[in-house]
Nucleic acid binder design. Structure first.
Lengths: 201, 201
DNA sequence: GACGCTAACTAACATTTGTTAGTTGCAAAC
DNA sequence: GTTTGCAACTAACAAATGTTAGTTAGCGTC
């Protein structure tokens, strides 16, 4: 017999609302520029009441940053697990990155810009994840070089440049803009691959 | 007879020191995260004494942002005045951008990241300058297309991507790193041109 | 009807913040 | 030698900040 199990949501609707509103505000005002009272008044309650739902201001930032990092890392891991062709790998990694950033626009912006306001401990953890992610890209580039399809380049430099290009998407992407995330990903892939492929010089 | 004219410096040494220290702090802590007391103690005086040299916290930000904007715009104007070949123009525009950002590392970082904390009025002005700068790049791309040396691309998208790539330099450039500004500019030019040139597809 | 849980509230707290007012020591200018 | 002005100081202010304490209203469960 089929029963719709009413599983308790691991994060309440109210908390989700607070998180969403917070990210929206932080995108406009920055993390430090957004006060608990700003957030409270945006969800029509008193600042103190927020503490019934979240344990403090920093968890808004840390949960966001780590969630986004998780999403990006997982996408990259899948790409590396499933595919073999480095060109294909890179193209899918780009697609995943753009997809995550455009699916969660506010979180994406906060993730890209405000991670440096994490507490010491969280920041170190975050940077470690970031380094892992960069290494994942470096591996793809190396593979491409070894197989002779990518030029030999300064890998650190190339990866940073690629991620720069990808991250800047949060700056101007608007859901109602004239390019879909897929189109953006495609164009960026073209752009990036044209700078790496061996045929060009 | 030669006399060394002791022209009154338009900005005193003390003020320059305060500005420099402020930018250094702001790079670490952000604009909002840097207090007047932080700045004061870094130059070994009381917060109130800062007001003998600067009229308020925001001028640190606004002077920095507008000075950097000025430098970038002037470089771009020169390029557009002197040269004709769009490939050459673009390459020199990139070189100028990298040169400015790497010559003034702290100011560059603050300029790229903290302009949004300018007062309403200053922010609008700043954004207008930014738009001018972007238009300068768009013009170069258009010329390249008209002359048949660049692919036809979505210009807005291309310019934003190019500037993203260039601006990210402030994130990782270290004066004692293993690439000189010239080398960085050269590599970035290669990368960008490979995505624009018509021969590649 | 008593109990406990949830989610809101009011009040208050200790700090921190940017800035102003008023004062003082000192060196250059007259 | 007096005056002037710069650059530092101390003291203070009003506002804002993140957070805690204590209370209360409503609602489902025993």
């Amino acid at each position: 017999m089929l029963v719709s199990v009413k599983s308790t949501p691991k994060t309440s609707a109210r908390k989700a609302q607070i998180m969403g509103v917070s990210l929206e505000l932080m995108r406009k005002l920055g993390y430090q520029g957004t006060s608990m009272r700003d957030i409270a008044s945006a969800v029509k309650m008193e600042a103190a009441s927020l503490y019934n739902h979240i344990s403090g201001k920093e968890v808004i930032l840390s949960e966001t940053c780590f969630q986004m990092a998780e999403r990006l890392l997982q996408g990259l891991a899948e790409v590396n697990d499933i595919y073999f062709n480095p060109t294909e790998k890179l193209s899918l990694a780009v697609k995943n990155h753009v997809k995550v950033l455009t699916e969660y626009t506010h979180a994406g912006w906060v993730f890209v810009h405000e991670w440096r306001h994490l507490s010491e401990e969280n920041r170190l953890h975050f940077v470690a994840l970031r380094d892992d992610y960069e290494k994942g890209f470096t591996t793809i580039l190396k593979q491409g070089e070894d197989e002779g399809v990518f030029q030999d380049v300064n890998n650190k430099f190339a990866v940073l440049t690629i991620l720069a290009t990808l991250n800047w998407v949060v700056e101007w992407y608007k859901p109602q803009g004239d390019m879909t995330p897929e189109q953006i990903a495609e164009k960026l892939t073209e752009f990036i691959l044209s700078g790496l492929k061996k045929e060009n010089n």
